[in-house]
Amino acid sequence: MKNRKRNGTRAESIIDSITGILDLPQDAVSGYAHIEISGNREAIIEGCQGVLEYNDNLIALNTGRLTVRICGCGLTIISMQNGQAIIRGTITGVDYCN
């Protein structure tokens, strides 16, 4: 188990270094989410795999390698389709957790 985890982190570090050398976008190769934020009103998260927490002030989304936590007030998921979530409301912060 420990070995598999070590192998996983090694593979990730190799992919990170390759994308760094080849100057490729991180979200295309490394499996990171692509997040676009327009002002503090709207966020578009691509690569969303599920909702972990949802209430008026916090939305936590599973994006694979990271958990994205969007804080704010009056948050609404406008649509969630094909791994893309559009969140609207007053966004006060974005946190990332492993």
Partner: peptide
């Protein structure tokens, strides 16, 4: 469980919009 409901909808291809969650 609202989150589970949303995730199950997503998995079954049920499209939700204007999704708002307050106090469960």
């Amino acid at each position: 469980f609202p989150e589970r409901f949303i995730n199950l909808c997503r998995l079954r291809g049920i499209l939700l919009w204007e999704l708002r969650c307050k106090d469960g």
